[in-house]
Computed example of a mutant assay.
Amino acid sequence: MQIDLKGRTALVTGSTQGIGAAIAAGLARAGARVGVNGRSPERVEQSVAELAKRVPGAEWVPVAADQVAGMLPDVDILVNNLGIFGAADPLEISDEEWRRYFEVNVLSAVRLTRLYLPGMTERGWGRIQYIASDSAIVTPAEMIHYGMSKTALLSVSRGFAKQAAGTGVTVNSVIAGPTHTGGVEDFVYELVDRSLPWDEAQRAFMRKYRPQSLVQRLIEPEEIANMVVYVSSDQASATTGGALRVDGGYVDSILP
């Protein structure tokens, strides 16, 4: 399948590392002009330099913090990847922390959707995606506040898909499973034999601590990016209102 995004402009929030950076690289390889977003101009510029090595010749737009509307007044593809996460005793999470998770993980995506959806519908083409998590469905007791925010994204995605009905704009969420991102290797080696090679260590970790996974390994960020790039393409024109799983079979259900 040849996916061609030439002439399209994309914005990937929280794209200076991990899943976001992989998505930015994937969209750029398909020919899109990509807005790279992060908290500080320095971090964004550093990430753009790293991405330029991964995808030579691509066109990047550095977009720090809340400069989005000024730097990219219109986009064709919006990937709401920005998110925070962390573990906490459920009975000790403050009202302020609950609000912070909702503000960052949900309302930031809602605001950008409100900003860009009208232009997409006017042009008759657009792609909006929300990066959700298996925690939206299999909510961990120690991450209820995070799981809540990701569950909310599934509802937000479905609702905006209805708002965009018949316009040529598709809206979907992508459910990412346990993923190999920064810091995960150290976490894995805290729980399994440090003498094991990485491939064996992660499989041992998954068998013992994430036995629901059917691939029995961590997902690579590029595997999630592959789904996002496809859903961003013309080939995915009939895929909308969905919660699309790239979870390695972690969620034990036929539908999310």
Rank of each mutant, 00 (worst) to 15 (best):
F102G: 12
T9S: 15
A87I: 06
T240C: 06
E92D: 06
E220C: 08
L82A: 11
A201R: 04
I137M: 10
R245H: 06
V44C: 10
T181S: 09
I175P: 00
N105Q: 10
F102M: 11
R210C: 02
L117D: 01
A87K: 15
A238E: 15
L72Y: 01
I224K: 05
T16E: 13
A24R: 13
I23V: 15
A25K: 04
D89M: 13
Y116G: 05
Q17Y: 13
P118D: 10
S195D: 02
Q46W: 12
W198L: 00
M143Q: 11
E222I: 09
G126D: 09
E59M: 14
Q202L: 00
M1L: 11
A10S: 09
P221V: 12
R207M: 01
G166P: 00
V174L: 06
T121M: 10
T139E: 12
Q216N: 08
P140Y: 14
L72Q: 05
R123M: 04
P197M: 02
V55C: 03
R158F: 07
E103P: 13
V61W: 13
A25E: 07
R158C: 03
G241E: 03
A201F: 00
Q235A: 10
A52I: 03
Q212G: 08
A204Y: 01
L11E: 05
E50K: 12
Y101N: 03
I93Y: 02
G35H: 06
I84E: 10
T240F: 09
A28L: 09
S253M: 08
D89I: 13
G119N: 02
I3T: 10
D252F: 07
I131N: 09
V192W: 00
G70H: 09
G14L: 04
G20L: 07
S233P: 05
